[in-house]
């Protein structure tokens, strides 16, 4: 078996054992967060690594979370059906915006800004539809009396969510692997380096691009939906705003978007950093963590543009080359 199968499975096994090692709820909570965000970051990187830097993922995540909760609250539609509908909605939106971008070759800055506008449209619409979404105050899924209900996708125990998140995370990594192994990757790499040349050697630029965009958007929406169920509270700022879009991009940059586990490392790094700083500095300075985080991002991009894991791998390669 290969590294891109073994590493995820080993990590998954360790995480799966965590509840049996008598870990605290707090610890489990951090793990769930890392896995869920790690999944979303991985989904983003599926397209980000090919030069499609999207600031629109806040929109997809928001749709995933809101559609699921709204269907539940208003129609009592189980999230088991609601989540696929939410994912479909996000994919449809991605297609509506993504296809023209692909056809018109909107790339680079322009792609980033169009997708940023998409996030703004979705986040502001959620606020604007305050009669049903609760506006900027946010929304809570109607609770099942028992606290735990498979039908409602509500679980009182964090441990259950740990396993849900773990499965999701593994799905993300295996999708990554599939993309990596499939023909699509070569096509997309060719595209990101030279679109005209790839078109001339017969790669269907548009189809490859749109496929990866839809895949990435759909998985992100799924992540958003599960995140909403886990938190049992969503608001436009935490699941859909421009802040979320930027958070995704930056965590990925920190971790490294070109290697399979890079986005997860980004999630772990940023969450652990935030928690550590919060504990060290205390709650009264509640922006100290993001201040340091922002500063580190700047330093990362200047001095370590491949991200933490990317830099580690590059270092290992160099060491190997030297030894040989």
């Amino acid at each position: 078996m290969q590294r891109d199968v073994i590493a995820p499975l080993v990590i998954a096994a360790l995480v799966a054992l965590a509840p049996f090692a008598g870990q605290t709820d707090y610890f489990i909570h951090i793990l769930v967060q890392i896995l869920l965000w790690g999944f979303i970051y991985t989904a983003w990187s599926l397209m980000g690594r090919f030069g499609l830097v999207s600031l629109g993922h806040g929109a997809f995540m928001g749709i995933g979370a809101y559609v699921t909760v709204l269907l539940w609250n208003f129609f009592e539609l189980t999230p088991w059906i609601g989540m696929p509908i939410a994912v479909a909605a996000a994919v449809a939106l991605a297609a509506i915006v993504g296809w023209p971008c692909v056809r018109l070759r909107i790339v680079g800055h322009y792609f980033a800004l169009v997708t940023l506008a998409l996030t703004a449209v979705v986040a502001l619409s959620i606020v604007g539809l305050r009669d049903i979404t609760g506006g900027s105050l946010g929304l809570t899924p109607n609770r099942e009396a028992a606290g735990t209900s498979i039908y409602a996708f509500q679980f009182a125990s964090k441990t259950v969510f740990l396993y849900v998140a773990l499965v999701l995370w593994l799905i993300g990594l295996f999708v990554w692997r599939a993309v990596d192994r499939g023909m699509g990757r070569y096509a997309l790499q060719a595209i990101s380096s030279d679109e005209d040349a790839s078109a001339s050697v017969g790669i269907n630029v548009g189809v490859e691009k749109i496929r990866i965009i839809l895949l990435s958007a759909g998985l992100t929406a799924l992540g958003g939906a599960v995140f909403g169920q886990y938190q049992m509270y969503i608001n436009p700022e935490t699941v859909s705003g421009i802040g979320v879009s930027l958070q995704i991009v930056f965590a990925v940059v920190a971790g490294g978007m070109f290697v399979q586990l890079g986005p997860t490392v980004g999630a772990a790094f940023t969450l652990i950093l935030a928690e550590t700083l919060r504990i060290l500095i205390g709650n009264e300075y509640h922006a100290a963590d993001t201040t340091i985080y922002g500063l580190m991002l700047v330093l990362f991009i200047i001095f370590m543009p491949k991200g933490i894991l990317g830099a580690v791998f590059a270092g290992l390669e160099r060491a190997k080359a030297k030894a040989a």
Binding site: G51, V53, G108, H109, A112, L246, V249, F250, V253, Y285, H286, A287, A288, D289, T290, T291, Y293, G294, L295, L297, V298, F300, I301, I302, P305
Partner: peptide
């Protein structure tokens, strides 16, 4: 420092500054 690197890095680095300034102001 990033003038010679990829345009998207230039975009992201100022995004990092955005994060920093916003948090710093909050702090």
């Amino acid at each position: 420092p990033v003038l010679q690197s990829e345009p998207i890095n230039q975009l992201l680095v100022t995004g990092g500054v955005l994060f920093f300034l916003q948090s710093f102001a909050t702090l």
